[in-house]
């Protein structure tokens, strides 16, 4: 070798191949908001998965001796007009809330990212067609479009999730397209083409990982509004069908008794707000952590 020996030669360090995802989770835990968001979310996911064992009562069983009873030792969150335990119903409702948030956002994200990447990468007429069609969807107010969709598809958990996914896909498509456009102009894209890598592989290997971070942040932030959108649909009677407990329809029923039994409104609303807060804070934390130049705690390093 006749190259200068001083550049790039460091003392022997052991070669370590680390999984890229592990530092991500570690950093998320180290981030204050991230730890809070993850904890609350984990709590709700636990309730969603094991609610049947945790809940003190059957959420749909009536206790005729305790109609509209205020919070007590037997019924922590009180009971509703049919004597059903509010705590058990809130726990049971978390299953729906978590499920809808994840299903609608992941479906919307998948559809949006595929559309956005294709539009951004191929450009031209493909871009115009995809972009305009997304603009049409975007022009409708979110909830109105979701209501129209549910009205067409029929009420129910899956249909409502699907409607929210369709309504949410344009925002993912936009973000994915914008990122794809900037990624496309990078030299490593040309380098990959020169290396002889095929277009689908380039899109998956070089485009997707660089498009995903901002999209994931958007997804985390969208979960809260998606969940709220579903609660609104369900409030309007377009969600799951009755006896199944659901925060939206619980609020809708509780509206009639708001003066005599405020706990019926407060409990599901508190659960809704807490979950939304967790999603929002977690979204912010994910954004901080996914920035390749982040400092771990979400703060800039102190300078002297």
């Amino acid at each position: 070798m006749n190259t200068s020996p001083d550049i790039g030669v460091v003392s022997k360090a052991p070669a370590r191949f680390r999984l890229p995802r592990v530092p991500f989770l570690r950093d998320l835990f180290r981030h204050k908001g991230g730890a809070f968001g993850l904890a609350v979310l984990a709590f709700f996911i636990f309730l969603a998965l094991f609610g049947h064992w945790v809940a003190p009562y059957d959420p749909n069983a009536s206790d005729m001796k305790a109609l509209l009873s205020p919070p007590s030792e037997a019924h922590w969150f009180g009971t509703d007009v049919l004597g059903r335990d509010t705590l058990s119903r809130v726990i049971d409702g978390s299953r729906i809330a978590i499920g809808v948030a994840f299903i609608s956002v992941s479906v919307g994200m998948a559809v949006g990212v595929v559309i956005g990447i294709i539009a951004g990468y191929f450009g031209g007429i493909v871009d115009s067609i995809l972009n305009r069609s997304q603009d049409i969807l975007f022009a409708f107010p979110t909830l109105l479009l979701a209501i129209i969709m549910v009205a067409v598809l029929g009420p129910g958990l899956v249909n409502a999730s699907l409607a929210i996914a369709i309504v949410y896909s344009p925002r993912f498509a936009r973000m994915a397209r914008a990122t794809a456009l900037s990624v496309k102009s990078h030299e490593y894209f040309d380098a990959a083409r020169l290396a002889g890598v095929g277009t689908p592989v380039i899109l998956v290997r070089h485009m997707l990982p660089n498009v995903l971070p901002p999209v994931i942040v958007l997804a985390a932030l969208s979960m809260s509004t998606a969940q709220l959108a579903y609660a609104s649909l369900s409030f309007l009677g377009l969600g799951v069908s009755p006896p199944q407990a659901d925060w939206g329809n619980m609020l809708s029923k509780a509206r009639d008794f708001i003066t005599v039994a405020p706990w019926l409104v407060i409990c599901p609303a508190a659960a809704l707000v807490l979950l939304m807060l967790a999603f929002n804070v977690l979204g912010d934390a994910v954004r901080d952590v996914l920035d390749p130049r982040h400092t771990g705690s979400g703060r800039a390093p102190e300078t002297l």
Binding site: E187, Y188, D190, A191, R205, P209, P292
Partner: peptide, 15 residues
């Protein structure tokens, strides 16, 4: 093959 002008932009930052 080609070597590009901008050394930091010529490699995928996530790989």
């Amino acid at each position: 093959q080609m070597v590009f002008q901008n050394p930091s932009g010529s490699m995928n930052p996530r790989r």
